[in-house]
Design a binder for these strands. Structure first.
Length: 474
RNA sequence: GACCCCAUCGUCUAGUCAGGCCUAGGACACAGGGUUUUCAUCCCUGCAACAGGGGUUCGAAUCCCCUUGGGGUCGCCA
């Protein structure tokens, strides 16, 4: 087998959602497994150009996911540039080759004329398709159109034939070009059609395997016709399941929805290894029982056959994995990643003394068993950094119930009796037993009441260790 | 509309290509129990599914057909 070279092609919009991340991970692991190369290519041959900002965003997300690539924009490589918008010359040159070989022809039909055609076809219930009307224009007709000032698109002549290829997931695939129309390779504004650009790039960049989502599947016959016409080797294809959101819509169609985006997940305190484990193991028995490092996936990575068309992103499952990852990760790392959240919420100042840092680590160690994400640490951290807490209405109401009132009175009484000792710590369990004596109430109930009063929260970390901060009364 | 694809516990899924190892496995959620003098975490147990209808076969979640439901593709879009 020739050298494995795969590519990841982020969209010009610039943010990575989990579906993109999955494809990027797959390509990365495939490259590593086969000692090959991964390259990054920006597909912005259309009207959307990728801004520097968007590019920064994508590379930031990829690096966060620990995905490294050998060639790409800002990195270079032997087959650049790696941005389609900068490769105009190459496409023109390849187009001229096709023109010489008479494999393409100019079509002068206007948008309006074609829309009419498609509308009629739709009305008759036919497949909407270009009718190859310009295939046999005479030189005189072409000249006349030119004189009218019309700019042509260039279309590829599709001859009737069967196209057969082997897909790494789907197996043998057979297409009949009878179903296809003469597709556009070069637009009137002289930008290449995506199919043409991708084919030329994949060939010229010596891509050996194309691993992407199934929404590209129907275009493969056109790609193969072009590879053949241009005299290139056809790469191996692997079409993965598309990833859907919880609303049963494919993620790649949800431009506006960023709850699936990697940067959103990062900002909300998800760890990259959670994303890895989720995206690479969902549905597997091993998911959430153990957490792997990205490198652990390399050796066992295989592209195995699958006839599924979609998988669904499950935010709840990801949360659960993130919880496991936070609990098993190195404490110092978790603390460092959590500091920005605490700073943002003014729980700590930007300049930390060494003692503060040690205190914070203890606090985070206490809390991290409770949370699904680093951002959630905030929800429990307040009491450790603020002097007073607000009591929500719901809790005030609960406290007003008679049993809880009894407990509160008992707490007050014990506190009064121990007034002198309050500044020194009354041992927590002794404190509790005395209230049990006074109220005959359930231990759990007492601790719940204490928690409410002390923290203003219904749930929280282990209370005993939190009670060094027991000076507050309601 | 035409063409193609898919359908498993409440949810996400394994198993389908190579029919028997499936009285259908896992995770989340839910319920019960246990540990922790505590809510929770953690551990154990339980609940719960092959979309419907026909075939083929000794045997079907698995192969074939129909119905229903979902999705993809069909532009000078990307």
């Amino acid at each position: 087998m020739s050298k494995v070279r795969v590519r990841f092609t982020p969209s010009p919009v610039g943010y990575l959602h989990v579906s993109n991340a999955r494809i990027a991970l797959i390509n990365y692991l495939f490259a590593r497994k086969h000692k090959g190369e991964l390259l990054l290519r920006i597909e912005d041959c259309g009207k959307d150009r990728m801004t520097d900002e968007a590019f920064e965003q994508v590379t930031k997300d990829l690096r966060w996911l620990k995905i490294e690539w050998e060639e790409g924009p800002n990195k270079g490589g032997p087959y650049g540039p790696y941005r389609q918008s900068l490769r105009g010359k190459i496409y023109t040159e390849r187009l001229n080759y096709l023109i010489e070989k008479k494999l393409v022809y100019p079509c002068y039909a206007t948008q309006k004329e074609l829309e009419q055609l498609y509308a009629d076809q739709r009305q008759r219930g036919e497949k909407v398709h270009y009718d190859n009307r310009a295939r046999n224009l005479s030189e005189a007709e072409k000249l006349e159109y030119e004189n009218q000032g019309r700019k042509p698109v260039w279309r590829f002549k599709v001859e009737p034939q069967k196209i057969v290829f082997h897909d790494m997931l789907l197996g043998m695939m057979t297409f009949d070009t009878f179903e296809m129309n003469d597709f556009v390779v070069m637009n009137a504004d002289h930008t290449p059609s995506p199919i043409f650009a991708i084919t030329v790039d994949d060939a010229q960049m010596k891509i050996s395997h194309v691993l992407w989502e199934q929404n590209h599947l129907q275009h493969i016959p056109a790609h193969i016709l072009l590879f053949n016409a241009l005299g290139y080797h056809i790469p191996q294809y692997g079409h993965f399941e598309m990833m859907y959101g919880v609303d049963s819509q494919p993620l790649y169609k949800q431009d506006l929805c960023d709850i699936y985006s990697c940067s959103h997940l990062r900002r909300n305190g998800f760890l990259p290894e959670s994303i890895h484990n989720y995206l690479l193991l969902f549905g597997k028995d091993t998911l959430s029982s153990t957490t792997h490092k990205l490198d652990d996936f390399i050796e066992g990575f295989t592209v195995s056959p699958s006839t599924k068309t979609y998988v669904t992103f499950d935010p709840e499952a990801l949360k659960k994995i993130n919880r496991c990852c936070i609990q098993s990760a190195d404490l110092i790392r978790i603390a460092d990643l959590t500091l920005p959240y605490l700073k943002e919420n003014k729980m700590i100042s930007s300049n930390l003394a060494q003692g503060d840092y040690e205190y914070i680590i203890k606090v985070i160690d206490l809390i991290r068993n409770q949370v699904d994400s680093l951002a959630e640490i905030n929800d429990y951290a307040g009491i450790f950094f603020f002097d007073y807490v607000a009591l929500p209405n719901a809790l005030t109401q609960k406290l007003s119930e008679s049993l809880n009132q009894n407990i509160l009175r008992a707490i007050d009484k014990v506190l009064d009796e121990e007034k002198d000792l309050v500044e020194v710590n009354v041992p927590f369990d002794e404190f509790c037993s005395r209230i049990v004596e006074l109220t005959q109430a359930d231990q759990g109930m007492i601790q719940s009441v204490l928690r409410w009063v002390l923290t203003g929260l219904e749930h929280g970390p282990e209370l005993q260790n939190s009670t060094n901060y027991c000076q507050k009364k309601k």
